[in-house]
């Protein structure tokens, strides 16, 4: 079993857990964390690809993952701001249940 496959399997597993959490939970913070899990899973898969070339790592992938992490951090920050504001306004950590829309 090569490292690439381990990385990929772990990544897919993380994505799966994250996706489940994202769909299952209603608490906004939990969902945001779930999103971060999906992101990390994706990055892990990508890092896995970078290991393939017999000792030589692929710089493109590393650049991509770095960019991706920055974007994910920004997204998390934006999400947190919105959630905090929501909490201030409504005192709730959940969105109201979907009405028939």
């Amino acid at each position: 079993m090569d490292t690439n496959l381990i990385f990929t399997l772990c990544g897919v597993g993380l994505c799966g857990i994250g996706f489940f959490g994202f769909i299952y939970h209603r608490h906004l913070l939990r969902r945001l964390i779930a999103f971060n899990l999906i992101g990390n899973g994706t990055f892990l898969i990508m890092v896995g690809f970078a290991q393939r070339g017999q000792g030589v790592t692929d710089h493109v992938i590393q650049a991509l993952v770095l960019t991706g992490i920055v974007v994910a951090v920004a997204a998390t920050a934006l999400g947190l701001v919105l959630i905090r504001r929501w909490f201030q306004l409504k005192g709730s950590t959940q969105l109201p249940e979907d009405d028939a829309s």
Binding site: C15, F22, R31, F35, I38, A75, L78, G79, L95
Partner: peptide, 20 residues
């Protein structure tokens, strides 16, 4: 605000799927 949170979550899920 509610709409924007919903929008953010949907969009983040979408972009993650795209990135993967």
């Amino acid at each position: 605000l509610e709409a924007s949170i919903r929008y953010l979550y949907a969009a983040l899920l979408g972009s993650m799927a795209y990135l993967l």
